[in-house]
Structures are given as C-alpha cells and as structure tokens.
Computed example of a mutant assay.
Amino acid sequence: MDQQVIPFDLVRMFIGEQPPLFYAEILFRTVLIYVYTLAMIRWIGGRGVAQLSMVEFLLVIALGSAVGDAMFYPEVPLLAAMAVITTIVLINKVLDRLIVRSDRAKTTLDGRPLALVRDGRILLDAIDHRDLGISEIKSMLRLAGVENLGELRAAYLEAGGGLSVFRAHPPRPGLSLVPPRHLLNPPPATDKPLAMDGQTCCGICGAPTGAQIIATRGRCSHCDGRAWQSPEWPAGTGEQDKGGTTPKE
C-alpha cells in the first residue's frame, strides 16, 4: 500500500527522498533529453512548428513537461523541477547566443530555407527534404494568396515554417491553384489538347511544356505525372480571356 501523502510536508515538497547527488543526475538527464529531443525535432523538420524556431518550439515542450509534472505529481520535488526548468532556460540562453553570433549554429539548430517553387514550377526537392506533398505545397501557396503558379518567380519554406513568396514581373500563364483540384467539377480532361500558344502545363507540378506531349500521352519530366492542363493567365493581368500574348508591364 502506498504511503499516505501528508499535505504541505515541506521536506517532501522541496527535497523529496532522493540523495543530494540525485540533483547532478537531474542535470545530466535534462541535458541528455534536451539534446536528443532537439535532434529528433530537427530530423522531423519544420512543417508543424509554424513561426517558432526549433529552439523556441523545444523550449515550450520542455518547460510544459517540467512545470506540469511538478504541479500534478506529489512525488516530484519542487527543487528537482526547478533544477530542470533552470537547466532548460540556461541551455536555451546559450543556444540563443550561439544563433545570434554564428550563422553556422543557426543553420545547424534551425535548418535552412527550402525552395518550393521556381519560375512557376513546384520543386520536388521539397517533398524529399521536408516530407511535404504537392497538395500540401499548393495549400500553403493558396493560404499565402497565390491563385496561379504563373504569378511566382520563387517561393521558399523558411526554417521556422513560414512561407516567403516572390512574385514574377510580369506574371506568366501557369497552373491555376484555385479552386483546389478536388473541387473541380468536372475534373480537367487529359485526352484533348489543352494548349495556349502551343503550350500546356503539368496538372501536378505546373511545369510548362509543349502541347504535343498530350498527343503522345507523355509523362512530365519533373514529377512523372500525366495530367495535363491548359495554362491560365493569373487574375488581374488583363490577358485571361485573350491568351497567347505577354502582358504589358
């Protein structure tokens, strides 16, 4: 039978039954778990971190666990929890200083920006490096207000999870992202010439190519897809209904 807990037992609350050397073990365990968790989060990538850096994200997790355990479990001494919290904060301060003073440390801890789009085409490297799907990339672009890949010169997924978008001047015809593909009714046909000035574009990654590829039922050289769509002018260019000419600057 468990020993009955005596309320406001100051020795239990602050010290517990552990020997003094146990606090050295706490410091070791905290550093080890912090470093291991940081490595795991870096391996996972930044898709779920939103605007927090990796270090800030881990700080929230680590402090939440340390503070929560001390609040709810009577067998966790407060001094032990305070030692964990202090160690976590000190590690975080040291890492912050390293990140400010060293670009190499910032890259190691937070990662690098990743190119998602270049010249109106989604880059498949993003899928390999951050476990992102093409549909997820298109969703992120729509959330950034992008309606058509032809609007973009480049787009980057920053280390903290934010999206940086650089517009093309002038915009080009490209793959429309609005509405999302699953809402199209009927879906775009793949067996007829959907071409503008002899051009078509991949319905998956947006890569432009010659319209003759439709007749040969060829695959996209970038994503290996076979869904071809007519490239559309981005809204606001004045060329949506004309087709074939470059918009004036």
Rank of each mutant, 00 (worst) to 15 (best):
G120A: 05
L124W: 08
W43M: 09
A24M: 15
V49G: 03
P113C: 05
R217M: 05
Q18P: 00
Y73C: 03
I41P: 00
R121Y: 00
S65N: 15
I91F: 08
W233P: 05
S221L: 12
S135Q: 13
K93N: 09
V67R: 02
I85G: 11
M13L: 11
D131L: 11
G64C: 07
A24P: 00
P20Y: 14
N185C: 07
K192S: 14
D224K: 12
A155H: 06
V94E: 03
G160D: 15
L141P: 01
M40C: 12
S164A: 09
L152K: 07
E56I: 11
S230E: 10
W43Q: 06
Q4K: 09
C223E: 02
P173F: 06
R47N: 04
P186H: 13
A80C: 03
M82R: 06
E25Q: 13
L177H: 03
V94K: 08
Q212S: 13
A159W: 13
F57H: 03
R219Q: 14
C223W: 05
S53W: 01
D2H: 14
L132W: 03
P180I: 11
T209L: 07
M40E: 00
A144I: 11
D224E: 12
G120H: 01
C223Y: 07
C205W: 11
R118K: 14
I15S: 06
G210N: 11
I214E: 01
L58F: 03
R104V: 12
D103G: 13
S139L: 12
P7A: 12
G238F: 06
D110E: 15
A126T: 09
R104P: 00
L163I: 15
P208F: 11
C205S: 11
L177W: 04
L124E: 09
H222A: 08
A81Q: 05
L163P: 00
R97M: 07
V146Y: 06
R97C: 06
T87L: 04
L152T: 10
G218W: 03
L149H: 06
T245C: 04
L90S: 13
P170R: 10
G133M: 10
V5R: 13
L21R: 14
